[in-house]
Design a protein around this nucleic acid. Sequence first.
DNA 1: ATTCGCGAGTAGACACTGTCTACGCCGTGC
DNA 2: GCACGGCGTAGACAGTGTCTACTCGCGAAT
Lengths: 196, 196
Amino acid sequence: MTEQERDLRARLVAAGVELVTREGVNALGLREIARQAGVSHGAPRRHFPTHRELLAAIARQGFGRLTDALAGADALAASTGADARTRLEALARAYLGYAAANPGMFELMFRHDLLEGSGADLRRTTLPLFRTFADLITEVHPQCDDPTAATAALWANLHGLAQLRAWGSLRLVTGTEDITPLLRAALDAHLGPAVR
Amino acid sequence: MTEQERDLRARLVAAGVELVTREGVNALGLREIARQAGVSHGAPRRHFPTHRELLAAIARQGFGRLTDALAGADALAASTGADARTRLEALARAYLGYAAANPGMFELMFRHDLLEGSGADLRRTTLPLFRTFADLITEVHPQCDDPTAATAALWANLHGLAQLRAWGSLRLVTGTEDITPLLRAALDAHLGPAVR
DNA sequence: ATTCGCGAGTAGACACTGTCTACGCCGTGC
DNA sequence: GCACGGCGTAGACAGTGTCTACTCGCGAAT
């Protein structure tokens, strides 16, 4: 059983991932994905009742890869005996790095109009990711009275940096493509300065 | 000259604003906007060479309203003799309030795939908004060495809160629809605690 | 005053999309 | 040996954005 003969369901998702990575989210037409997978335009219907459910499956793959990237970055940082603050910085860099390296996929993942109906499932896949952040936050801020709020606020900051960079306004405002000073400012704000 | 007889260009934009406010961004088909304005589907082409340029004009209206809302909130706070920190809080609330009250418009405003080509102009319209934030930031943090980065980081935090709330993940994580604790955490992080 | 030109809106064609339906095909179980 | 059910094909259908005649009305120039 070769690559071409796997389950059509997995092949369609793989074709979609390939497409969204190479051409962006508006190249993810149902017929285009079917063409990419080498089947007729009616074939996806046997595996996904509607176009949006296929897109949701593609986005799920993206969330999986993002979670893997974050887990890998955290494991790498933890293996060097880094403290919680440094590990959080590694996580943040991994989040922004994924968004920058996969702009089309990142856009799809948070396009709730395309994922409506399966959005609840997708949102749930971010929960372990969130918990990783929350655990490190409570380690950095032991006497924080609302660690969930602090974690959500930091996550929102990272997410906003990713989105505004993708939109192009950060380069307009800062004059450079490099957002590491912005990331540093955000981390310093939420976690306190790096050196105390 | 009645409401129905104004320039078709303005009427199309008004119809689009109405549509996106009532039905969301995926109701903004070119033919649908034309129907809403009471003209044939070819009429918009005389005023907007392509569908995206019409959408960009609609989004421009949204940015204008957002800027107005922020300016109004800042003026109101300033008129009561509030300090910079309180005015920044009012601005932040106005930003999140606009995003919550006009979810469709807010989504359209940052959908760069729909606004490609006119995106640069739209981004520029956010510059005065950004300067308002930056001025207040330098007032709160006089000896900040990079106020632009601090301002961009705060803006990204607000934007991320707006987007993640629209996406629904904040409610999943915090268990409530109220994001004021998150906003407070973000403001405390970037500006320091309210009471020093 | 008549005619010319042109801006503006209409209507239809075209290629494309997502969804639905009828059909054929092939492997499995009785 | 045969019916059946799952899977992919192919066509129809309504809808979309864009493009191209076509018409109508009005202002200007002769």
